[in-house]
Simulated scan of single mutants.
Amino acid sequence: MKRIALFLITNIAVILVLSVVLSLLGFTGILDETGVGLDYGSLLLFAAVFGFGGSFISLAMSKWMAKRMTGAQVITTPRNQAEAWLVETVKSQAARAGIGMPEVAIFDQDTPNAFATGMTKNSSLVAVSTGLMRTMNKDEVEAVLAHEVSHIANGDMVTLTLIQGVVNTFVIFISRVVGYFVDRVILKNEEGLGIGFFVTSIVAQIVFGILASTIVFWFSRQREFRADAGGAKLAGREKMISALEKLRKSMTEPLPEQMSSFGISGKTGDHGLKMLFMTHPPLEHRIAALQGKSIQ
């Protein structure tokens, strides 16, 4: 219930902020001055503000949201040797990767998982689950941390935000154009924007959004391969392979939906068309890539 409330409050806040931004930019509507045609400039402005604005506000709030949705506790003063080792390992890897020291946190989850998030390379968060600390040895945990540090060093959070912003903009823009066409050409509405515009726009946005998400998911899968390679460089290839093997053999509890693309865990097996909608490549593919094997 707490996660749902946070999600709703965040989205309402984003809509309010973006509405104020549009007002400040002088946005008055997507119809032209005569009310008989689309104002494509205003429509593109509307689409870009909501497309990019929502993505960047979500990125700016990502650390705050991640801590509250997973219950991650940042290690400010290590309470034991394990926490001290975590902090020192991340500190060493961050220095070698050329980024600022991330916050290091632990969240309570029985299965092994980890994630990294944050708006910039020098203001980020790396978190591991209690299950990961229990089921993996130090070499494997080191590799997982290196994978997450590599995500930060590669700027993956910002890159994915930009891609999502572009996709969102085109989806919002095109769905409104389709809605306008249906409303004016097919339903013959000549006064303002009718119900046909709003219904069609919503349906088109859902359909185009689903199709466009495959682009975002493709980029997300590619960044996992890059982060695995970066983790292998920082911690060692065999350690990275061993960590992925351990994940493959574990039943992994997923992270909250809004954070699924930031976690290390992925599914196993060949999923066919389902692969198009996966944020992570199958673990077998990731292991094969590190071993230099071709994927059949």
Rank of each mutant, 00 (worst) to 15 (best):
residue 185 V to I: 08
residue 180 Y to L: 09
residue 154 N to H: 15
residue 157 M to C: 07
residue 152 I to L: 04
residue 165 G to T: 08
residue 160 L to I: 07
residue 160 L to C: 01
residue 164 Q to E: 09
residue 175 S to P: 05
residue 172 I to N: 07
residue 186 I to S: 00
residue 164 Q to M: 07
residue 169 T to A: 08
residue 167 V to T: 12
residue 181 F to L: 08
residue 155 G to H: 12
residue 185 V to Y: 12
residue 169 T to W: 01
residue 171 V to T: 11
residue 178 V to I: 13
residue 180 Y to K: 01
residue 167 V to A: 12
residue 162 L to P: 11
residue 155 G to M: 08
residue 186 I to L: 10
residue 173 F to I: 02
residue 157 M to T: 11
residue 152 I to Q: 02
residue 186 I to N: 00
residue 170 F to I: 05
residue 158 V to H: 12
residue 164 Q to N: 13
residue 160 L to R: 10
residue 151 H to F: 06
residue 181 F to Y: 15
residue 185 V to P: 01
residue 160 L to M: 13
residue 170 F to P: 01
residue 170 F to S: 06
residue 185 V to T: 14
residue 158 V to A: 15
residue 178 V to H: 00
residue 177 V to M: 15
residue 185 V to C: 05
residue 177 V to I: 15
residue 151 H to I: 05
residue 157 M to F: 02
residue 172 I to T: 11
residue 176 R to V: 08
residue 159 T to V: 14
residue 174 I to M: 01
residue 160 L to F: 03
residue 181 F to W: 11
residue 178 V to Y: 00
residue 182 V to M: 10
residue 171 V to M: 08
residue 157 M to V: 09
residue 178 V to D: 00
residue 180 Y to V: 02
residue 154 N to L: 15
residue 154 N to S: 15
residue 180 Y to R: 07
residue 172 I to W: 10
residue 158 V to T: 14
residue 159 T to F: 15
residue 179 G to S: 13
residue 167 V to S: 11
residue 166 V to W: 04
residue 173 F to A: 07
residue 154 N to Y: 12
residue 161 T to E: 01
residue 179 G to N: 13
residue 165 G to Y: 06
residue 154 N to M: 12
residue 154 N to W: 07
residue 162 L to R: 13
residue 186 I to E: 01
residue 160 L to H: 04
residue 177 V to R: 03
residue 183 D to I: 06
residue 169 T to K: 03
residue 167 V to C: 05
residue 166 V to G: 05
residue 163 I to G: 05
residue 166 V to H: 04
residue 158 V to D: 10
residue 162 L to K: 11
residue 184 R to C: 12
residue 162 L to S: 13
